[in-house]
Every structure is written in C-alpha cells, then in structure tokens.
Amino acid sequence: MSANRNDIADFSYFLAIVRHGNFRRAAVELGVTPSAVSHSLRGLETRLGVRLLNRTNRSITLTAAGEELHNAIVEPFARIDRARETLNRFRDTPTGRIRINAASDAVALLLAPVMPVFVDRYPDVELDIVASNRLVDIVASGFDAGIRYGGTIPEDMIARRLSPDMRWVVAASPAYLRHFGTPATPADLADHRCLGVRLGDDRLYRWEFRGPDGEFDIATPNPITLDDSRSMLIMAINGTGLMFGPEALFKPALADGSLTLVLENYATTGPGFSIYFPSRRQLPTGLRVLIDLIKEIDPLNA
C-alpha cells in the first residue's frame, strides 16, 4: 500500500505525538488543536487498518505496529526537516515559527531590547516566547530553544553565551532603609526582611556573596517568597524588603532613586544568559538570526 497525501500529513502528526508522548504538547508544536491531532491519528489508523498507539488517561505508548512505523519514517522526516532548513538559508529573508522558553529576566533584559529591530529586520519569522522561571524539558514541551542563566542549563544541551557575566547585588528602597537601617555585612540580614527567591525547581535560593575568604551563601529570613523578579522588584520599590538579583534588573530603579544598593563590597558575579538547544537538531535559521542579533546589539553590555 503506497502512502497518499493524507498519510504524509498524518505521519508528521504521529511523529509529534511520539516525540512528546502527549497530544496537547504535540498540538502546541504543530500549531493546531489537540482535537485536530487526535482526529489525524484516528484517520491514519483507520486507513492503515492497525492501531499505532495505546492510549490511557496517563500515558501513550507505541504498539508493535506503531513502533515499526515510527522506526521506518522518523529518519526520512528528519532529513526533510534538515533539507527545508538548508533551503531556508538561501532565502533573502528567514521565515518560520520559533518557540523559546526563557527565564523572565532574560525576556526583560535580553529579548525585549532587541525585539524592535528583530521584527523590522525579519518580518517573516514568528517568535513564540514563553517567559517562565520553571525549568522544563524544552524538547518534550515543543520548544526550539531555552534561555537561562549559564549555571542552570541542562548538560545534554548545546549552549551559546548571549551576555557577559552579571553582577549580583542587594537593593532596598530608601524608605525601607530609613525604617529598618542598612545592613553592614551579610550576617546582618538575619535581622532584616528579605524577599525570598523560589527557583525554577522549587528550591529556595540562598543569597550568594563574596568576602575576604571567597564566595559563600546564606539562608535569609523570608516573610515573602516569590518566583518572579518583576513582581519582587515592585515589592522592593514599595519598601517591603531587601531584594537580591542581577544589577542590570535594578538599573532603572537605581537611576531614579527608588532603590539603593547595599552590601556592595560583598557583591558577587555569576554566568550571564545562554541560549541552549538539542545537539541533535539543526539550528533553525530564525533562531540563528536571533542569536546573531542579540550578539550584535549586546543589550546587557551596551
């Protein structure tokens, strides 16, 4: 039985389902509804006369026939994707849809400053950006790439640095410092109100400093804990407590006097932002030009 046009389209849906193990995530990658993905699979199974997937409320697994089909078509479709991307390099203007999962700070500090130039220069590239501090499997979730601080990138990914090292500092509003005083050393934070940081893996962040004997970290008293630095910044400006974060994030508030740095002699530096993607996947042209533009504009070093 030869494949018809409907089979070819449904094969790509089938491969996306297997890749993600989830109809909803496959639909996100394909830009369609989950019901469309389900309908495509049913149509393919009906035409082929075999069940390809075992489906329960909790899992999706390949049948023997499904595994046979997957093994037969996965590499040919991968070659087609690579060929399409290679041809895209010959276009005057890159095209396509790129999905990026980025830390909230990266969206505000790295992506936002370059977006006006990007949309003007590459009008045929559609960027779908999810700003989230929660660590996700970018492959399983249908993303082309992720952007994180350098120290949090999965080891099995290819990473490219997008910004220089960043200085991490503590800031507070003048009103807070008038009311509670200014800490002279990190040890003084035990008597202060600190805004706790919840990391993408749900751990509570220990504030990091550099002293005469090297780097160290401490647990802080946290009457309020947040997982979003923009919300934290608003609370700090309003005098809720001391905030720890990258100095670049505080720049506007420091310039207008709504925040003041403290403990500057103990400030430390850490890896800047990097973009990462699977090593087995050819870099889409749209993603490549975005990386090049970020390096060209260099918003965190401008």
Rank of each mutant, 00 (worst) to 15 (best):
L261Q: 15
P174E: 07
V262G: 10
T260I: 07
L259Y: 10
G211A: 12
G211W: 00
T240D: 08
I60E: 05
P271Y: 08
S59A: 09
A83C: 03
I73Y: 02
G245W: 04
G200F: 00
R121C: 03
I158Q: 15
A3C: 01
I224H: 01
A190V: 03
P186R: 06
N265K: 15
R47F: 04
D217A: 14
S104R: 10
G142A: 10
A236R: 13
S258F: 00
D298I: 00
L189W: 04
T220Y: 02
V197H: 13
A172S: 14
S2N: 09
L226V: 12
T182R: 15
D137L: 04
R55T: 13
R84H: 12
I129R: 08
N22Y: 08
L44S: 03
E215C: 01
L189H: 05
A3V: 03
T225N: 00
S258R: 15
A187H: 13
L195E: 04
A108M: 08
S2H: 10
S231M: 06
L290K: 11
N238R: 15
W168L: 03
I158T: 15
L254N: 12
I17D: 01
L41D: 04
A140D: 13
L204P: 01
A65I: 02
G66C: 03
N4S: 11
A16G: 13
L30G: 06
V262N: 11
D120Y: 05
R198W: 00
L283E: 09
Y122D: 07
G151M: 06
P76C: 08
F11D: 09
A175P: 02
I8Q: 11
E208S: 15
I100S: 10
E45Y: 02
S12I: 07
I291G: 09
D165G: 03
D202A: 08
S274Q: 14
I60L: 14
S104G: 07
M235W: 07
I73S: 04
I294C: 12
L233F: 02
D105R: 08
T56P: 07
N222Y: 00
G214L: 03
F216R: 12
A145L: 03
A248N: 11
N301H: 13
D201Q: 04
S231K: 09
L41R: 11
D10G: 00
L15K: 11
S12Q: 15
L283M: 09
R288K: 10
G270F: 05
